[in-house]
Amino acid sequence: MTSELDDLYQEVILDHNKRPRNRKKLENADRQAEGYNPLCGDHVNVFLKIEGDRVREVTFEGSGCAISTASASLMTEAVRGKTLSEAKELFGRFHGLITGEPGETSDGPGLGKLEVFSGVCKYPARVKCATLAWHTVKAALDDEGEVISTE
């Protein structure tokens, strides 16, 4: 098949779509946020357990396309164990990767596994799929108690 297709749907994405990690409701979550993409109807809930200034546990619930499911799954792996400020900084760099505007954070450490989403920036229609879980976790980190919309 075309290389464009393989660039977008990399094996890691397909794997996390089929077997999403940390997809469960977190009982006794300290913080929680809900994200919604009105364009496609995707819903995601993100749950956080915070210890001190560190994210001890992070899970999500919801379903959507492969890009949004894999993005939520990989987000939970990336954010776990980070401090609140590290996690927010990671959001900024991931957002830069997806929207094709790395900006001032491009000198920072690599995004590791998250770089599998680098192909998404070529598909404006799908950018919101990749960023929904990240906008939602940022809202949870900021403790904004409202539904986050991608619009």
Binding site: E4, L5, G64, C65, A66, I67, T69, R126, C129
Partner: peptide
């Protein structure tokens, strides 16, 4: 097993 949005993107690529 495939979300319609993923299908739509893959169809578009063709």
């Amino acid at each position: 097993g495939v979300h319609p949005h993923d299908a739509g993107t893959i169809l578009d690529l063709q």
